[in-house]
Simulated scan of single mutants.
Amino acid sequence: MSLAKTLEVTTPSDLEIVVERLFDAPQDLVFDCYTKPELVRRWLTGPDGWSLPTCEIDLRVGGTYRYVWSGPEGETMGMTGQYQQISPVDTLVSTEVFDDDFGMGKMLVTLTFIREGERTRLQTAMLFQTKAQRDAAVETGMTEGMGTSFAALDRLLKDIG
């Protein structure tokens, strides 16, 4: 299946990327898969051969999260963020910064979980500080990576739903 059929990616302004994906699972379950470390570790693993050994989530406003991925050749990639707003099952707003900048800087990420019957539309809105940072994020192949991760999330939702 092509990513064009699973992800809708837009750039509504020079500072934003918005990615939407519909999941065949209830809103609370999709929200749990973003907020419970034991579930996040099962789908947010990265490319084939990678894993997420460090997944720390302090789910409260002002709380932080930390992810560190490990690759098959011993590579690592880390990311840290801080929760700005939490509305259980509806919204998560957090900062996000990678250990290796990749030119993206610090971004503000708003996850909106929208109930559509028994399904959930996830809208991921990323706000960058500059257009150059937004463009750098696009150039990293971030949306392709998100497509891979969302396919893994789809499989997990089927397993636990």
Rank of each mutant, 00 (worst) to 15 (best):
L108S: 11
S94I: 00
L122I: 07
L52F: 05
I114L: 14
T120F: 08
Q129E: 14
G78F: 02
K158A: 15
D159R: 12
A151W: 03
I114F: 08
L59D: 13
T120I: 04
S2I: 01
R134E: 08
T130R: 11
T11H: 15
G71N: 05
A125N: 11
E56A: 12
E144M: 10
G105I: 04
C55D: 06
A137T: 08
T76N: 12
K106W: 02
R21W: 07
R60E: 02
F128N: 04
M104R: 10
R42G: 03
I114S: 14
F150N: 07
E139C: 09
G145V: 07
L156Q: 04
E144R: 07
I114H: 14
I17H: 07
E16H: 05
I86C: 01
G46N: 07
F113E: 05
G103I: 03
S149W: 00
V109Q: 06
G103N: 10
A4M: 03
G71Q: 10
F23N: 12
G147N: 08
D101H: 05
M1H: 06
T95D: 00
A151T: 15
G81W: 03
L59G: 12
D24V: 04
K36T: 10
P12N: 06
R115F: 03
Q27E: 14
L15Q: 05
Y67R: 06
M126K: 07
F98L: 01
L7K: 14
R42S: 09
G71H: 09
W43P: 14
E118S: 15
F23M: 06
D154I: 01
E38G: 01
Q133W: 02
D48M: 11
L15T: 01
T35M: 09
T54K: 11
L108F: 00
I17G: 10
T6K: 07
D48H: 11
Q129S: 12
G105M: 09
A132W: 02
T80A: 12
G49S: 10
F31P: 00
V138T: 05
L111A: 03
T124Q: 15
W43M: 02
D14L: 05
K36M: 08
P47Q: 10
G74T: 15
D58H: 04
L15R: 08
R41I: 12
F102Q: 10
D101M: 05
T76F: 04
M77R: 12
R155D: 15
T110H: 00
G147E: 01
E139Q: 15
E144Q: 13
L39Q: 05
G62V: 14
D48T: 05
R115Y: 03
R121L: 13
C55A: 13
F98K: 04
T91I: 10
D90I: 02
R121T: 03
T120E: 10
D90M: 01
P72E: 03
R41G: 12
A25L: 05
V61C: 07
V93F: 04
E38V: 11
P12C: 11
S2Q: 09
R21I: 12
T148C: 11
G63R: 09
G147D: 08
V109Y: 02
D90S: 03
R115A: 15
M104H: 06
G74S: 10
T35N: 05
V97E: 14
G63Q: 11
L39F: 06
P72R: 10
A25W: 10
G78L: 04
G105R: 13
T124W: 12
Y67V: 12
T110Y: 00
K158D: 15
P12W: 09
L22D: 03
